[in-house]
């Protein structure tokens, strides 16, 4: 456990009477790709928001590199090196692609020429350099998701948390995105993804955390997890599970 990066301990979050997360714990080691999966409404995005400071936790603690980041403000957590994206790609609509990435780049650098240069490098890395002068809104869904990843990378994170970056992509775009995330990891960035696209989860993840109704039910390597009866029950229902027995 020498390379422990993110340590989530007993996180609970309630919206009124609804328990969105209940006592969720998991760890992420440096250099890993960890997927969080679960049926709709399992609390995956809420967990993301709790870790990155967008929601206040009701219980539990979050540590990043041993430092307590529980309930810190999102920008402070970002500065420490934890950056997230949103389920619906969020870009700044009256900016070009390059300017969007530059806005992220200002987190670690303040001089405009330097930030612009680094943003250009990030865009070359993510394959959007040719489109850098296009307006961000004019991009296709897949390019927008790519832009979001670029903006996050410009912030030079150690831990990148992607919320459904594969949803709505064509098979070809999906391949490209999987490749991109692999490349990101090669750069030394640890990645946590919330994902529904199982093809990507199976291929990318070192480990999978499964949530259901806000609780963690299983954790392990992808092949083991999908064969786990509890997971099948959560996804396909009690009756299907019984029929298979």
């Amino acid at each position: 456990m020498s390379s422990l990066l993110l340590d989530v301990q007993g996180v609970s979050k309630y919206f009124g009477g609804l328990q969105a997360n209940e006592d969720v714990s998991f760890q992420v080691n440096k250099g890993e790709i960890v997927s969080i999966i679960g049926p709709n409404g399992a609390g995956k995005s809420t967990l993301f928001s709790c870790i990155t400071g967008f929601h206040r936790l009701d219980k539990g603690q979050v540590f990043f590199k041993g430092q307590d980041i529980t309930n810190r403000k999102p920008h402070a957590i970002g500065k420490l090196g934890v950056v997230r994206t949103f389920q619906i790609a969020q870009v700044i609509s009256d900016m070009t692609v390059l300017e969007n990435v530059m806005t992220g780049g200002f987190l670690k650098h303040s001089r405009v020429p330097e930030v612009r240069k680094r943003a250009g490098e990030v865009l070359s890395f993510t394959g959007l350099f040719e489109k850098r002068h296009r307006n961000a809104l004019s991009l296709s869904i897949s390019d927008k998701k790519r832009l979001e990843v670029s903006m996050a990378l410009a912030m030079e994170p150690e831990l990148l948390m992607l919320d459904e970056s594969m949803a709505g992509l064509t098979p070809v775009e999906l391949r490209e995105m999987i490749e991109l995330i692999r490349k990101v990891r090669q750069r030394g960035v640890t990645v946590v993804v919330v994902e529904h696209v199982m093809e990507a989860v199976m291929e990318l993840s070192d480990r999978v955390v499964v949530l259901n109704s806000g609780r963690k039910i299983v954790e392990g390597p992808p092949k083991e997890v999908v064969a786990n009866p509890e997971v099948i029950r959560a996804y396909l229902g009690e009756r299907y599970h019984a029929a298979r027995q």
Binding site: Q90, I92, G104, L107, M155
Partner: peptide, 26 residues
């Protein structure tokens, strides 16, 4: 408008969420 502050202002205008994601102290 041509410095960091201007970029951050425009991020805030877009939405507080995206500004937070980008590390802006809104």
């Amino acid at each position: 408008s041509s410095s960091k502050m201007g970029y951050y202002f425009r991020a805030i205008k877009e939405s507080h969420d995206i500004a937070h994601v980008l590390g802006v102290d809104v």
